[in-house]
């Protein structure tokens, strides 16, 4: 699974984004995190092999999420489905 790390000044939280390379909402999410100087990692799920896709789906389901991309996982505890700017800001304390 190709996990891409994007460096940022704010690395208080571990932020992981499951995204689709074709999805503009996923792009907005990545851009928002970058602009907010949040350090994060992302995986473009549509480039993953089936085995990794299954792992990702299990990870999302285990945290009570839905298969609605982007999926933003914070500290492996809080899951946000979709680009919800205010919710992301609240959780990350922005």
């Amino acid at each position: 699974m190709k996990i891409v790390k994007v460096s940022g000044k704010n690395n208080k939280h571990r932020v992981l984004v499951y995204a689709l390379s074709t999805c503009p909402w996923c792009r907005l999410t990545k851009q928002f995190l970058k602009d907010s100087e949040i350090e994060y990692e992302y995986v473009d799920v549509d480039f993953c092999v089936e085995e990794d896709m299954n792992k990702i789906r299990k990870h999302i389901f285990n945290l009570g999420g839905k298969l609605t991309y982007p999926v933003i996982i914070i500290d492996d505890k809080i899951l946000i489905n979709g680009f919800r700017r205010e919710q992301i800001k609240e959780v990350l304390g922005l």
């Binding site: 689709l20 074709t22 999805c23 503009p24 549509d46 896709m53 298969l67 991309y69």
Partner: peptide, 10 residues
């Protein structure tokens, strides 16, 4: 895929 499926769905 050979068809234009939704870019925001897998």
């Amino acid at each position: 895929y050979g068809y234009p499926s939704c870019p925001c769905r897998l």
